[in-house]
Simulated scan of single mutants.
Amino acid sequence: MSMSRCVALTNRHLVRGRLTDQIRLLVAGGIPSILLREKDLSQEEYADLARAVIPLMSVPGDCILHHHIDVARDLHHPAIHLPLPDLRRIWGDWLDFEIRGASVHSVSEAREAQDLGATYLMASPIFETACKPGVLPKGTAFIGELVRLTGLPIYALGGIDLHNAQEALDAGATGVCLMSAAMGVDGDGVEELRRFVR
Score class of each variant (00 low, 15 high):
Ala110Met: 06
Leu56Thr: 11
Arg12Lys: 13
His13Met: 07
Trp94Ile: 14
Thr174Lys: 13
Arg73Gly: 10
Met3Thr: 12
His13Cys: 12
Glu45Trp: 03
Gly117Asn: 02
Pro125Ser: 12
Trp91Arg: 15
Met3Asn: 11
Ala8Gly: 04
Met179Pro: 07
Leu14Cys: 11
Ala79Ile: 05
Arg89Ser: 15
Pro153Arg: 01
His76Ala: 15
Leu49Trp: 00
Gly172Lys: 07
Gly151Leu: 05
Ala123Cys: 08
Ala110Phe: 01
Glu98Asp: 11
Asp115Met: 05
Ser42Leu: 12
Val53Ser: 12
Val53Asp: 12
Thr140Phe: 00
Arg198Glu: 15
Glu145Asn: 13
Phe97Leu: 06
Ile90Lys: 09
Ser4Thr: 07
Thr140Arg: 02
Ile80Gly: 15
Asp86Tyr: 02
Leu41His: 06
Gly151Asp: 01
Ile90Gly: 12
Pro83Arg: 12
Leu35Thr: 11
Pro153Glu: 05
Ile126Thr: 02
Met1Ala: 13
Ile99Val: 14
Asp93His: 13
Val147Gly: 05
Ser124Glu: 10
Ala113Glu: 08
His105Pro: 08
Ala181Ile: 01
Ala28Met: 11
Ile64Leu: 05
Val107Ser: 10
Glu145Cys: 11
Leu14Thr: 01
Ala52Glu: 15
Ile34Ala: 11
Glu112Cys: 07
Asp186Pro: 01
Leu178Cys: 13
Met183Leu: 07
Met183Pro: 10
Ser108Val: 10
Cys177Ser: 05
Pro137Ile: 04
Ala50Lys: 06
Gly92Cys: 12
Ile160Trp: 06
Ala52Tyr: 01
Ala165Thr: 01
Pro32Leu: 06
His77Ala: 04
Leu95Glu: 10
Phe97Gly: 06
Ala181His: 09
Asp93Asn: 15
Phe142Glu: 11
Ala113Leu: 08
Gly184Pro: 08
Ala181Asp: 09
Ile80Ser: 07
Gln22Arg: 09
Arg148Pro: 12
Asp96Asn: 10
Gly134Trp: 04
Asp188Ala: 14
Asp86Phe: 03
Glu167Asp: 14
Arg51Asp: 06
Asp86Ile: 05
His67Cys: 12
Glu112Trp: 04
Gly61Cys: 10
Ala156Ser: 09
Ser2Gln: 14
Lys132Thr: 11
Asp40Ser: 14
Leu65Asn: 08
Ser2Leu: 07
Gly172His: 10
Cys131Leu: 03
Thr10Ile: 02
His13Ile: 01
Glu167Arg: 07
Gly172Tyr: 02
His77Lys: 01
Ser108Cys: 12
Leu75Lys: 03
Ala123Thr: 05
Leu26Thr: 02
Leu56Arg: 09
Ile143Tyr: 00
Leu65Met: 06
Glu145Leu: 04
Gln22Leu: 03
Ala181Tyr: 07
Arg194Thr: 11
Gly61Lys: 08
Gln22Asp: 09
Ala156Trp: 03
Cys177Ile: 05
Lys138Leu: 14
Ile154Asn: 14
